[in-house]
Amino acid sequence: MSRAEAVRRTSPLWTLGLFRSELLTTFRRWRTVALLGVLAAVPVLVGIAVRIETGDGSPAGGGGGGGGGPAFISQITNNGLFLVFTALAATLPFFLPMAIGVVAGDALAGEANAGTLRYLLVAPAGRTRLLLAKYATVMAFCLVATLVVAVSALLVGALLFPLGDLTTISGTRIGFGEGLARALLIALVVAASLIGVAALGLFVSTLTNSGIAAMATTVGLLITVQILDQIPQLHALHPYLFSHYWLSFADLMREPVHWDDLTKNLGLQALYAAVFGSAAWARFTSKDITA
């Protein structure tokens, strides 16, 4: 009895310890490292492609035509900082959420698949706390993955293109320091945009004992939602799809910042986190752990 009380008293530390060990396990996996490597490679590819294309002095993005390629691509040659925005715009629709889907889908189902979940539950931390630690780990991965893209883009941008004052998309000028601050803010918003997918992936992960099935389902749902978001007849549904406001991070580059869609995006992500997080909790705390 006294031992149990001791455990209860030190519970915050327990959660923290659990979170730390989860974090280490996740980031030590080769799979995670490979995912981050792929993400870091995207800005390198974009940067080199733009550099080669504009080597003869022609502007990127097909000159005056615009519309082609990811957002901000036409400004990269003038300011390397724009590569950060382009890289995030290019990875956000698919690469980033796919990586999150893999990590989140694997979180519980992978453990169950490997037969290690029951050992985790032997520790007197409780299922709710384990779930929280898992979710915190996935969110940490969201942040790390986004920062990897942003930092890699910043390095490539600084190497290949000039840096300096930048023009916001509203046509006003801001200094490089403020530009960097906005880039960091944008990276945080992009990371927050992935909260919904992370919660969805975790919920799917509680439904099955197969890690592969959970990952495939999460990524499949991601693709389905992206397709639904493109069908004009379903426009009434669009504001409730987690990917609908993803590109609103670009609104941070307006002057003054246009907050409407940004707040909608964050609210929607919070809603997805609440609904699927509690659904994951309901499922995980009442499920039979057989492996």
């Binding site: 035509g65 615009g66 519309g67 036409s74 400004q75 023009t167 916001t168 046509g171």
Partner: peptide
């Protein structure tokens, strides 16, 4: 009078 199209940087 300036017109600025940020999409195509024109």
């Amino acid at each position: 009078l300036w017109g600025y199209d940020s999409g195509s940087n024109a």
